[in-house]
Design a protein around this nucleic acid. Structure first.
Lengths: 344, 344
DNA sequence: CTTTAGCACTCGTAACCCCAGAGTGCTAAA
DNA sequence: TTTAGCACTCTGGGGTTACGAGTGCTAAAG
């Protein structure tokens, strides 16, 4: 469907894209002519650019201006022309030091820190989603009596989540009864993902145990509730102010819409999940995004894994005029890091 | 020190402040003259306004413009002239419904929701600080063996915090040994605030127990670490986009500085804590704030209590031209709500 | 002594115009 | 097929002008 361009057109398109990414100004034929390895006059370039415009890869903001890449132009660039360089030594240093210096035991800290690193290395806004509790596998359940009435239910997953909840029970259980119940539950639930712990499964377990221990009813209700509650997932943002540096957001109204979006976590989660793919970095340019508010933006996403299982998503959001090459290499680096460090 | 104004000057000052709060435009003598209960000609008002300017309560952006309140003007208004109305029935409805509809068991949810309510009811940015872990009193410590090596340490405070941490121990403790240690610790620590659990106290306890149980060393290290780690406190923000609606933030640069501030949680915490007072709503206008970035803003803070003990701070931040009356009444309402609902 | 009407004055804003500069498309020559 | 040349278009900045809102002052009125 996409007609491949001839070599010269490709070079010109690439030059326009790269130049525009840097300057944010429409790129004229002279500029392209002067650019690296381009032994052609501006007139020739002008003709080619007119062709590229007709084909939909470039556009002129007004008659006497240079050209700007269209969404299609960026797409062709990303698919066929982009050079993804390794990170410079400086960048590499900066990134690995800010990833490792902080003592990051807790998973939340790692995620939060990742968002910071990603945004500062790309000068864009970053979105980082933690491991999905839903997809984590059940590992331990413990019930810990606190006093006459209250107990603490603790739930631990393979991805390192520790969820807890204080529950109230009418009667005290004897230690042995408690032990019995808890080991039964652990046996039944071990290895299941949280998604798989459905209401019907819980009901079934409840029936089994009910005959023996009526007291636990409330514990079950609360367990169930707490599982439901966790549907919403935290998305960590980094560098939200970076969008203000982009000239395409000099309009206060656009900024408002954007920041408004940032306040809606569940929506961010959906956007990230819809955009991402299991095992590759995905680039969504402009209207390729389904959500109205980011139709003038590019969203680049990557996924990381814990124990070889897809687990969380990292994203970078900015104007379509974005340094694709840099963002992609930084993201690769970060995903590698997360893959390695979250599994241990 | 502050000379009280005569009745007429007060009325004029009040009219200027109220008008300016609504329109965000400099207020001219004609406007004041036409305003409610003001049977004077504009010329008279002009004279009075010239006086008020000389006294430092008003200022002219330029010679041929109306007047705008100065920081001093707002201060006089807040201290002497403000009418704090009860919330309208509509507002009352809106606020109490959004406070109560959500099922809000977890303390984080209550706090987060409060931030939302506060910002949407005032059209400003809100800052809400959760109960301070530091000031909470120790209630329970439990150690829960998970498997051969790992145990879960759980710490519960009177304000409802549940902190936990997985620790690794070289040797397994027998249940009775564990019980012994834990009940000793609970006995020693019960009722102390987290602030009071100093390193030296921990060391002392460690010495006591060490002789008996060397194994716990790592547990102690981790306990200590976890206490230190919690120094940073979460501040929940609401309506960060609201500042964009204020004409004083039409300058992108100011917006950037502001949003930048919002990303620095520890700083927000300090600002809130410095501004607030134990048991009253505090209004800090303009340069009364010590932090450079909010010297053109007003910060209004209130504190709520859990079990009659000061516990958290709520704040509203916006331009000095802010609806003081409304913000104060909404905040009163919210603080009442929190006082009631967090103690149970 | 206080208030008010009248008036000249100030200053910011918006509208307008003009011009330079950048970049184009087209034509004709190489 | 490429390029030089040229006329044309459009934006943006700078300068000028006209308008209007609001002032301070003066002198008259209460």
């Amino acid at each position: 469907m996409v007609v491949p361009l001839n070599e010269r057109k490709e070079q010109i398109l690439k030059a326009v894209v790269i130049n525009y990414i840097i300057t944010a100004e429409p790129v004229g034929s002279r500029t392209v002519a002067r650019s690296h390895r381009m032994d052609l006059s501006s007139a020739t370039i002008r003709n080619e650019m007119a062709d590229l415009e007709e084909m939909g890869y470039l556009i002129q903001p007004h008659t006497s201006a240079g050209r700007v890449p269209t969404q299609l132009g960026y797409r062709y660039y990303v698919d066929n022309l982009i050079d993804i360089d390794d990170l410079s030594a400086d960048d590499e240093m900066a990134i690995s030091s800010s990833l490792s210096t902080e003592k990051m035991r807790e998973i939340e800290q790692i995620i939060n820190n990742s968002a910071r690193v990603l945004s500062s290395a790309t000068n864009q806004t970053s979105l980082v989603m933690g491991p999905q509790f839903q997809k984590s596998a059940f590992q331990h359940l413990r019930i810990l009596p606190l006093d006459d009435k209250r107990s603490l239910v603790v739930l631990i997953t393979d991805t390192g989540f520790i969820k807890n909840k204080v529950i109230e029970m009418q009667q005290q259980l004897s230690p042995s009864e408690l032990h019995q119940v808890v080991s039964y539950l652990n046996q039944k639930l071990y290895g299941l993902t949280i998604d798989q712990v459905t209401t019907s499964l819980i009901n079934e377990l409840k029936r089994d145990l009910f005959r023996r221990l009526e007291i636990l009813e409330q514990a079950f209700i609360l367990l169930e509730e707490s599982l439901m509650e966790e549907k919403q997932i935290r998305v960590f943002l980094g560098g939200t102010t970076n969008i203000l540096n982009q000239p395409e957001f000099k309009d206060v109204d656009k900024v408002r819409r954007m920041l408004n979006l940032f306040e809606q976590e569940p929506l961010l989660f959906k956007i990230l999940e819809d955009a991402s793919s299991e095992d590759d970095i995905v680039v969504r340019i402009g209207a390729e995004n389904e959500y109205e508010d980011i139709k003038e933006c590019t969203l680049i996403t990557g996924t990381y894994k814990i124990h070889d299982k897809t687990s969380g998503i990292v994203g970078v959001l900015g104007p379509t005029r974005m340094d694709y090459s840099r963002v992609i290499s930084v993201m690769r680096r970060l995903v590698d890091y997360l893959n390695q460090n979250l599994s241990s």
